Simulated scan of single mutants.
Amino acid sequence: MDEIRRSPIKGRGAVSNATGRFERETRVLTDDGWTGYAESGNEALSDPVRTTVSPASAKSIVTANQSPDIPFDRSVNPYQGCEHACIYCFARPTHAYLGLSPGLDFETKLFAKRNAAELLAKELRAKSYVCQPLALGANTDPYQPIERTEGITRRVLEVCRDFNQPVSIITKSALVLRDLDILAPMAAQGLASVAVSVTTLDRDLARTMEPRASTPPRRLEAIRALSEAGVPVAVLASPMIPALNDHELEAILEAAAGAGATAANYILLRLPLEIASLFEEWLRVHAPNRADRVLSLMRQSRDGALYRSGFGTRMKGSGPYAELLRHRFKLACRKHGLGGRSWQLDCSRFRVPPAVGDQLSLL
């Protein structure tokens, strides 16, 4: 039987629910003649896909990494999966470890680490703990829509505040402004910074590429409000996608600098594992006239492949196109006074507060 191609689903990024790489079988949609899909114009496949949130039984919350091209070595991620539904999200393949699809499952079957704050406090109290800045949201966005009701990120920030634990947040959501009452006092002590991802200034492109994230104007408003409150803000013009949003690089940096960002970075689109086929599928549906050009330039920037995972080149690529993008970024940063993203926060203030029931010091 011929496979049925899914139609775009409103408010979702992935077009399909491709089987994860660890599964023994591959599941596809076909019309066996009983459902009437062919006669209905595929409408039955466009029914709303609902978001579900399940508790994640986390046993630890601080994740360490030794990647030489990442400016932090430990992070906290309150959620698995992300409802922002960004089609390019490099975290999508992690859902395969759960026996789920990196496609629609990643953005609809979410897991909340509701004991994250308690676990963090326990880990920070350990005698072996050595204070280093924490990156909050290095994998999935800590301010995705379900944070409004779950409140896990806020509770994690409260723990960081109580311990004077330096924290840097990575987000593309204006919901970060909800926690200015915590972030601003921490920033005044050199304990907090925020990096806001602005992928495009085109609202139509954003609506299809990252459908449930804050709109580009709202992200710029968030940069402005954070800056005015004294919180250091960087803009992440990421990912840059050849022939799709790369022409906006200078405009994004100019707009962010005008809103108060003082640092910037960018990443060339990464397509590891299942993301390559998911992104190509998205391109063929949403930008069919550009798809071949985008993929050709990606291969030119990845030594003939859609992705190379080697440290040092995976973030920026190689070849003439990648070099031109790098040069454009440097010139724009120089023009608008944007430095490199700094993670130099003050670790000297870290202290372990008394726990409930502890005897108070006589000193």
Rank of each mutant, 00 (worst) to 15 (best):
S7A: 15
I9K: 13
G20F: 07
E23Y: 05
G33C: 13
S46W: 00
D47T: 14
N65Y: 00
P71N: 11
D73F: 01
G81A: 02
T94P: 00
P102K: 11
G103W: 07
L104N: 08
T108I: 07
K109H: 13
F111Q: 15
K113E: 02
A116I: 08
L119K: 05
A121E: 14
E123W: 11
Y129L: 05
E150G: 06
R154P: 01
V156F: 06
V167R: 07
I170D: 03
I170P: 00
L180P: 13
Q189F: 00
A192L: 06
S193H: 06
L201I: 11
D202K: 12
R203P: 01
L205D: 02
R207W: 03
R212N: 15
R212S: 13
P216L: 10
A225S: 14
A229N: 04
V235Y: 09
A237R: 08
A255L: 02
G258Q: 14
A259E: 09
L278D: 13
R293Q: 14
L295Q: 09
S296F: 09
R302A: 02
D303V: 03
G304T: 06
A305D: 08
T313V: 15
L324R: 15
H327N: 07
L331N: 03
A332P: 02
G339S: 08
S342L: 03
Q359Y: 02
L363Y: 04
